[in-house]
Nucleic acid binder design. Sequence first.
DNA 1: GTTGACCATCACATCGATGTGATGGTTCGA
DNA 2: TCGAACCATCACATCGATGTGATGGTCAAC
Lengths: 132, 132
Amino acid sequence: MRIGELSERTGTPRRLLRYYEEQGLIFPSRCANGYRAYDESLVDRILQIRGLLDAGLPTRIIKQILPCLNKPRVIHFSDATPEMIATLEDERDRMTERIECLVRNRDAIADYLDAVRGDKRPDAAPEASTTP
Amino acid sequence: MRIGELSERTGTPRRLLRYYEEQGLIFPSRCANGYRAYDESLVDRILQIRGLLDAGLPTRIIKQILPCLNKPRVIHFSDATPEMIATLEDERDRMTERIECLVRNRDAIADYLDAVRGDKRPDAAPEASTTP
DNA sequence: GTTGACCATCACATCGATGTGATGGTTCGA
DNA sequence: TCGAACCATCACATCGATGTGATGGTCAAC
């Protein structure tokens, strides 16, 4: 597909699809006329990239971890240098920290919302303190 | 404490402590001479802010959710306007999406790392496919 | 009272992600 | 053949989070 369709199907501005390519995150091929040609699988990949960007990872890191994700899992052990491994372990741990921070705060928000709602309708409170 | 100590204890540049204040995330009091005076509890708060920032939340959102987090949980239901509630629900859901995306990708990295390590030391592979 | 380590404000620079517009080529249907 | 709808590249602007430096006040120790 061409850039317009990919843009529509992923909700991503064309500008950014070109930017992700420039950053080395995707490698669309080219038609004879110079138009970019995107493979079907890039729809998911773009979504994945955007999710990671939204979660705070920079393109530099995304570029490093993408090659290791959802691959045939059989080939490509060749390019796993020790530095790469260390980088990945680092990033895995950083992601775990991010996850924990997000979970903590999201749960706090959820608790607050539950409390506010429980305050307004004290009958349907889902906790265990209403019927003693 | 003053800004220098807070900066050291949180690993945050003074510049950013002032920036967070400018963005309405923290409200240090002032000494007679104009120096900012930070309460002990702000150490954790700064860490929390940095974690959320690192996880991709903008200060604008952090400013909205902070008042609802780890508070006495008793007072302050007054300022919960319906729009505020809606914003919080939105943000809670967005955080959940972020979390799921991060977990998916972190697990993929972890799996990859396990596979690579299992490839190098096929004896201690933790999965269930080595001893048939 | 001077020095050095703090602090203040303010302005400007940078960096990554994104928006926007200028300019021009390709394709295709009216 | 013309115009609309794509596409290309390129340059510049914006925005939020940060870095950096200029300029000057406060205070404790010497």
